[in-house]
Amino acid sequence: MRYSILAAAIFLILGGSFSAGAAEPMDDLRGPIEQVISILKDPKYNGSAMKEQQRMEIMAVIKKIFSFYEISKRALGRNWNKFNIQQRQVFEETFADFLGYTYFKKVRDSYQGENVVFLSQEKIGDAKAVVKTKIPRKNNEIPLDYRTFSKKGEWYIYDVIIEGVSLVTNYRTQFGKILGKESPDELIERLRKKIVEQREQDKTTS
């Protein structure tokens, strides 16, 4: 009896860790990304009144697989050290919202029922992987790669590469330029202003 309980315990612990270790980055991303697409396709969000609802539901899914902490840290690069803990937290949330607004608007405006095609995954050691996808369009296709890292057997995105351009590196260049002249709070304020701008634009166009 004792032994069988022990065996069961070992099985549970090992089995659990095996299944966690066996999680593949592509599988971890596939579900949530397909969920985002189904929210985009769902006709119940048609019409501008449901826009905000749709954006919030997509953001909720996005926040499960994107590590905005890592994204923020990397997008600030060396300047991360200039931010105190509170500024880091506020920056992370503001940057996440900024990216959410910007790209949701773009995706919603130009979405024409495309699906994401998962091409391959390349592991870099145990802790990092690149998941390659593409989005077929009318006359071309957009290559979209996700850089991911693993945490407790699950994979999170810390960079997106669109047609060979790393989003994080692109923002790091811009943030570096701005932080050469301005303070962390001023940078956060700039992001906040962009969000307000986009919300107002959204209202006038809808």
């Binding site: 905005f68 840290k73 145990d126 693993s150």
Partner: peptide, 17 residues
Amino acid sequence: MESDNPEFQEEDSDYLY
């Protein structure tokens, strides 16, 4: 969401560069 994977962390200390 911070990575607790030692390998990622280790390399992580170089993230600034």
